[in-house]
Each structure stands twice: as C-alpha cells, then as structure tokens.
C-alpha cells in the first residue's frame, strides 16, 4: 500500500509542472490563481502523508533503551490522548516544570519514557542529506491527529502568560549584523521577500493559515519540516547563530504565534515550495 502510494505520488509530481517551486520563476501576475490551483492539486497527493504513516508506526512501536512505545506520552490531554492535543500546544507541563511545544514535549517523552539520549535527539531532529529524522515523522503524525481542531492555546497558567509575553518581545527584538527581527518582515500587509509573500502577524487570517499548516511538506527539500525547523531557519536567515531545538525562545515564539492564530483549523501536513 505504501509502495503504491509512493509510486502514485511520484507519478503525480512528475506530471504536474512546478510553477512557483523555483525561486527563479518570473512573476506573471495572472498566474497567482494557477499557483493556488497547483497547491490545491498537490494537497490531494501530499507526499507528507508518507511521513505521517511513518510517524504513526514509530509512535506506537516499542523503542529506545527502555523498549516502550510513546503510548504513555502525555501531550497535555492525558497519557496516550492524541486527538486534539497538538491544537492546544504549547502549554505548561507540571512534570517538566516548563512550557513545551509539540517537539520539545516529544523530546521530553522520548527521554523520560523511552530512555533516548537528549543531546542525540536534538542533534538528529532535522533530517539532512540521506539521514531521515524520526522527529519530523513523529511531529507530523501527532499534529495530524489534530486535523479539524481549532488552534486553542489558553494562557491560563501564569507560566504560559509569561512565555507569551516573552515570545511577543522576542518577535520584535532586533539584533545581529542585519539589525533583523521577525517583525521586520512579518508586520506588513502584502509584502514580499523576492517572490515570497510574507505572513503579517497582525492579520489573523494569515497567521491562522500558516500556523494551522505546519508541519509541512517542503517540495524543494523533499521532506517534512516542522515549526522548530521554521524557527531555526528564520534565525539562520537573520544571520543569528543556531537556536537550540525546543529551546525557550522557540517555544515562546510559537506560543505567541499560536495565540495570534487562535481559532485557525489544523490541516497538516501542509505543502510548500
């Protein structure tokens, strides 16, 4: 079944021309509609579904030094409850003593339940070259179990409110050799970096659309990428050092964005250039 799916997907991808996939594509104004159409068509055969399937298998398989599955992992709604859990993250977790997003929570479970080495998990969180990432598959699987749920972070715990405020401040914090902050690019309506449209954090429709569609399949990278990767990527482009996977800065930013996106429906995996 998986092989068949894989083959049909490959066939689909070969058949569809790739306008918008290359950063060198010239702007032709009347093609915006055809791009949207192309994205709709791709969604019907989203290769990211293969990562969802792999993540499902990994999640329920006994793994790690302790040879247990992640079925006892509490993602906020109780051990083993996956439906709707991602939509309410990040949130404060008593057992960890901190606010965690999906990925930092998965790391927590893989370390405490399965006995994996934390440093190694962080090192291998992003797939690269030929090496697949379990984290990308696990994250998109768990997120997909919230499909159709509205994003609904609550900020009911004082630490959540604290992290929201920190995230908001980080979003506007300029630094580095290009004087950049997230806000430099993401507080304007209808602006582009080169040909790439930029989300405006003050436009709830755009923020909902974006935050509800990560993790996403990246056509240009041939893999699923997660919000943690998006956070790393933005800071890298801002000429800042690598931000640590699952760190407080990334969680605070994701919490800030998900609060702005509240009410948006989860629909993952997304698909992007």
């Amino acid at each position: 079944m998986t092989r068949f799916l894989s083959k049909s997907l490959a066939f689909l991808l070969l058949c569809i021309p790739f306008p918008g996939v290359s950063a060198e594509t010239p702007v032709v104004d009347d093609r915006a509609d055809s791009i949207a159409e192309y994205r709709r068509m791709l969604r019907e055969g989203n290769p990211g579904e293969l990562w969802v399937a792999r993540g499902e298998a990994l999640f329920h398989l006994p793994r790690g030094p302790n040879e247990v599955s992640l079925d006892e992992c509490d993602l906020g709604l109780g051990p083993g409850v996956l439906d709707g859990a991602f939509a309410a993250l990040p949130r404060y977790f008593e057992d960890a003593g901190r606010v965690q997003d999906l990925e930092s929570r998965l790391v927590h479970c893989m370390v405490t339940l399965q006995g994996f080495d934390r440093e190694q998990l962080l090192d291998e969180a992003f797939s690269s070259g030929g090496r697949e990432s379990d984290m990308e598959a696990l994250a998109v699987y768990v997120a997909s179990r919230s499909n159709g749920y509205p994003l609904s972070v609550e900020l009911s715990h004082p630490r959540e409110l604290e992290m929201f405020r920190i995230g908001e401040a980080l979003f506007h914090r300029r630094s580095g050799p290009m004087d950049m902050s997230c806000a430099v690019c993401h507080t304007h309506e209808q602006r582009r970096i080169r040909l790439q449209g930029l989300m405006n954090v003050n436009n709830p429709l755009q923020v909902r659309d974006v935050m509800g569609s990560w993790p996403t399949y990246r056509v240009s990278q041939g893999t699923v990428r997660t919000l943690q990767h998006r956070m790393w990527d933005c800071h890298w482009e801002m000429r800042l050092p690598d931000v640590e996977y699952g760190s407080d800065a990334t969680v605070a930013l994701i919490l800030y964005l998900n609060e702005r996106a509240r009410g948006g429906l989860v629909d993952v995996p997304g698909i992007r250039r």
Partner: peptide, 25 residues
C-alpha cells in the same frame, strides 16, 4: 520583562560559540 527575555536568549543560544553569540547582544 526585558531581563527575562535576555535570560531566555542566553539560554536558548547557550551552545553558540562566543564569536557567534555576540551577535545576539
């Protein structure tokens, strides 16, 4: 709040070598 933010920055980029970390100041 700003002091909290700076603490989060130091912590979240704690593995960056000093030559890179100074970009965050």
């Amino acid at each position: 709040l700003e002091r909290q933010v700076e603490a989060v920055v130091r912590d979240s980029w704690g593995d960056a070598p000093p030559s890179e970390a100074r970009r965050l100041a």
